[in-house]
Structures are given as C-alpha cells and as structure tokens.
Design a protein around this nucleic acid. Structure first.
Lengths: 226, 226
DNA sequence: CTCATACTTCGCTTATTGTCGAAGTATGAA
DNA sequence: TTCATACTTCGACAATAAGCGAAGTATGAG
C-alpha cells in the first residue's frame, strides 16, 4: 500500500517555488548546471545547492559531475510524468517572455522531458494509430508489423528499443491539448530523429521546438498527418 | 505554461505526513468526517482542522456540512489521480493491520477513488476491450455499439453517462499490477453495480473490496473474464 | 604556478509550520 | 432547557525551512 511518509516527503520536496522552478526547467529534457538552475529559480547559488540536495535526497533528480561542472537531470520518466501532472493540475499560465507569441509555439511543439509534446505530437500519435503502425492495447501500446518498417525507415532501431527495459510506448497526457501524445523510448527516438534530420530545432532556452516549414511538411507527409 | 508557484503550493499542501494520510484515507472514495480523519492521521482534532483548511485552500478537498458534521471528500478525479501517482511513485509498503493477509486482498480488488482497482479490475478492463465492448482510441476510450447493450444489461444507463460532462472512460494506472484499470464515470458505475448486486462488499474501514465466491464467478461469467 | 570559475558548506537571520490543550461555537439528543 | 458531541479558533511552544553572504574546496584556463 502507499506509504504516506514517503509520499509526503516527495511532495514536500516539490513543494517550494524555487524547487518547482528547477523541476520545470529540467522538464525541457536538458541537463542543467546549478548555476543555470540558480538563474531559473531566481535564488542565490547557495540556496540552489540546498534545494538540489533536497531534490536529490527525494530521488527526483540525478547529478553527474564533469570536471567542475555538475549536470542535473530529472531522475526518470515517472518523476517527469508526476511533474507534468502537477503542472497540469495547476493549469497553464501565459509565459512572460521578451519576444513574440511564445505560448502558441509551445502549444504547437515542445519537449516534454525527452519526447515531443504539443499539437503536432498529438496529431503524430493519432496518425501512428490510425495507420495501424501502433496498436493501442490495455497493457500498453505495441508497434505493429506494419509500423516496424515505417519507423525503421525513419531511422529508428525498433528492435533495440524493444530490447530495452524501458517502456517503448507510453501515452502522456498533453496538458495543452488535453489529448495524448507518445512518450516512452519510441517517443524519445522520434524526437531525436526529428531534431537530427533538422526538421525542427529547439530554442536555445526553454522547451519550444520549432519546425521549419519544410520540416513540418516532411513530418506530415512521412507520417500521414492530415 | 505551468505555474511554479501554484504547482509548489499544491505539492506543499500534500507534503506533510498527516495530510498525506488524510488524502490516502479519502482515496477510499468515502466522505469522512474530521474526527475520522483525525484518527487516520494520528493527530489532534485541532491539528486536523488546520490541515483540512490547507487542503481546502489548495482545492484538493471539498467539505460539506450536514448538521454538526462535516464531510470531506477529494475534490475531483484529477486530484485523485495525482494522489494515486504520488502513491505509485512512493511505492507500496506492507499494511500493518490487525487481521490477516490484507495486502493480497488489496491487490485483488480495492476502491481507487470511486472505481474498482486491483487485479480483478485490470482483468475486467482487458476483457471489456478484448470483447470489443470498449474501444481504445488515442483520444480516449469509447463504448462500442456491441458494448452498449452489455453494459445496459448490467444496469448502467450508458446514455446518461455519455451526456455527462465527466469523462466516461479513462485509464488509470494500477500501481499494484502495473497495468491499467478503468476509471471515469463508467468505472464508477461498474463498481456501484458490483456493490449493489452484492457480488462484492467493501470493508468497513479501508479500501479493500471483497468478492464473494459467487460474485466473482458472476463477474467473470458476465464479462467473459478468463 | 596563479588566477578564475563552479559549486558547496557554514553560520546566521527570519519566517513558516506543526503540534497541542483550552476555550469557544454550532448542532442535536434527551 | 440542559448536556453532549462535533468541530474550530486561539495562544503558546518547538521545530523546521528558506534565504543570504562569506569562506572553503575542486577544477580548469592561462
């Protein structure tokens, strides 16, 4: 059964504005340094250090040292999903950023931990199912025999994904669209492929993924997205 | 986009052992009084009052007055799902209870907010899909034309469920089985039906649902569960 | 080797939180 | 009307937490 003490400690670890900012910043999927996170959280580096210690103790983040740099990441996708759920419950608010209408861009395509989220991601997922390249089952989502060559044609080593212990396919609730997009190792591989083919690029900061006109066209063609 | 302040306040509201115990107690789906919750949380009534005020402020619970009694419930199923997710992340631990092997009973059938969870619930859901009475789609789970008479035969007013604003069908991750069971208004209606037919009964305290031998047989027969 | 950078630890201050018993308020039974 | 019950509010106490600047440690550039 659930352990209220442990549950409370996890929630308490998240339950501070600075730590929430840190977790949300990490939801972009990038490993960030304490200095970067200090800027995101708008607290002093020493305070950030203490916060990271708490997040680490609660197993919400991992830290890897590389020379004098520390790289912080969200521990695993269960944590990512929890943060996303908490985010969804707290509802979307407008982004206060310097340039242009960013929120629409975020709705269209963004990184959710390690996979693509947003309207395009939702439609991609729907198309994969509609084309019977993925099959929805009660115990998960399966890559079909029809879908395998399509995904391999896109450059994904499907066999390797399936050999991995990690879930290949998982639905992730897209808070901006209130439908699902594809998470799991296949979701991550699709994003990697999109980025490596330069159909889209990430913003330098933040989570937005911007498709070029050509890239979006290519995505829609290859995956039969209306 | 996500609001870190609001996200932090929701998580902080959960992030105390006493409040976690309160929320987990409420996950049984029953409205409980502050006195009952005080016993569950193992704190003084005045402390419970303060905790309930915090949970209410964070919109995690609702309180209804009935004479001198207050009845507390979880606000909505998004909150229930969040609590379930947090519970899943913190992992199951053995129940320390007076009588018998409760944990196995909890794995078999229990209440998850307002619907059935556990091994039987998972198999019920799988069967509903396998029999094509429910259909998995990327935008949700639909009751099929084939399934409609089956559910109505069980005593469920399917049209009324579908007219409701609430989601009829939703997958809920069963932490004990690591597969999904059925939540949403259909999930709740199924549980109501099972209880009203006396195929199963709830324990007086806690979340366990106990099927009689006859009731389990009936469930398996009517819903083609192997 | 020296200096700069990244990051943590320490000590301190301030604020917040959780707990309780006692008192108070509202409701219901007798 | 009186007494019991359910629950909240108040005041007090103790513990915890978040914040910072300064100092310390480790790494890397020049």
């Amino acid at each position: 059964m659930n352990n209220p003490e442990l549950m409370a400690s996890i929630a308490a670890a998240i339950g501070d504005p600075a730590r929430s900012k840190i977790l949300l910043a990490l939801m972009g999927g990038r490993a960030l340094t304490p200095t970067e996170l200090s800027l995101e959280a708008e607290v002093a580096p020493s305070t950030t250090s203490a916060h990271l210690a708490k997040l680490h103790k609660a197993d919400l983040v991992t830290v890897v040292r590389q020379g004098r740099h520390r790289y912080v990441q969200i521990s695993n996708e269960q944590v990512a999903e929890l943060v996303e759920r908490l985010g969804g419950l707290s509802g979307p608010v407008p982004i206060k950023t310097a340039s242009g209408p960013k929120d629409p861009a975020m709705r269209t395509a963004r990184v959710c931990y390690d996979h693509l989220a947003g309207e395009l991601a939702v439609r991609l997922f729907e198309s994969l199912v509609r084309q019977h390249w993925l099959e929805l089952k009660t115990d998960g989502i399966a890559i079909t025999d029809r879908g395998r060559p399509i995904l391999e044609g896109f450059g994904i080593d499907v066999a390797a994904l399936e050999r991995s212990r990690r879930l290949t396919c998982r639905q992730c609730l897209d808070w901006s669209e209130r439908r699902h997009h594809l998470a799991g190792s296949l979701g991550a591989a699709l994003l990697d492929g999109i980025l490596s083919k330069r159909w889209a690029e990430r913003d330098l900061v933040g989570r937005t993924v911007r498709f070029s006109a050509k890239g979006e066209k290519q995505l829609k063609r290859d995956f039969r997205i209306p």
